[in-house]
Write a protein that binds this DNA or RNA. Structure first.
Lengths: 107, 107
DNA sequence: ATAAAATATGAACATTTGCTCATATGTATT
DNA sequence: AATACATATGAGCAAATGTTCATATTTTAT
């Protein structure tokens, strides 16, 4: 590496240090099988807690806990519908990110 | 959700259960700020352990540990060059994935 | 108003994770 | 051959994480 390259990379890293923190934080959300399953299910359709719990064979409590994390990170949103609370993806990025990872795995 | 939708989603989830495990495992690698920084640095240029350590202000030992994880997951590869061991990305997917996450953050 | 249903939440616990420190290993230099 | 340099590795530790269990909260149905 020449000194120009070194300076450039050095700059990128130190300048965006905080950004990397956020990026890691984002990926951490996808880094748990329960959560990716939840997110992937939601790419297909919005659904309520009970359905998610049933689909994924995860405790209702566990699902709730994970949904809280996903919601506070703005990956999902929720609305009440009668007795149920229906969850859905906030935007299309989640699907994009999942697809991106899947792409890597299929090699 | 109609029963067709339910059946379809149910199928997707149970059929690919193992895949989600792998996907989560993959994202977990990006879910640590030290590792994304390392990976991002490597998108710019191959470099040796000492350089990474210097760039990121992380202990040499810590860098080595993380590189071992990244290598055993096939995200990076290494070769010896004199006294140093030079690390580089295995393929372009890492960059794609990082960009994909960055995209999400820039909103 | 009361009971049932759906979801949320807090505490406790076991597991995982990432770092540090000390040291081992391997290569280059003299 | 001996020393210095670069990297790897293992043990130990503290912090973070995900789950479970019990219970609280909120809405619906009777």
């Amino acid at each position: 590496m020449d000194s120009n390259t070194i300076a450039r990379i050095q700059a990128i890293i130190t300048k965006n240090s905080e950004l990397f923190e956020e990026l890691a934080q984002l990926y951490k959300l996808f880094g748990d099988s329960s959560r990716v399953k939840i997110l992937c299910a939601l790419t297909q359709s919005e659904m309520c807690v009970g359905e998610i719990s049933e689909f994924l064979s995860i405790t209702q409590s566990a699902v709730s806990h994970q949904l809280r994390i996903l919601k506070s990170s703005n990956l999902v949103k929720s609305r009440r519908q009668g007795k149920n609370i229906v969850y859905s993806l906030t935007d299309e990025h989640v699907k994009t990110i999942i697809d991106c990872g899947m792409e890597h795995l299929s090699e």
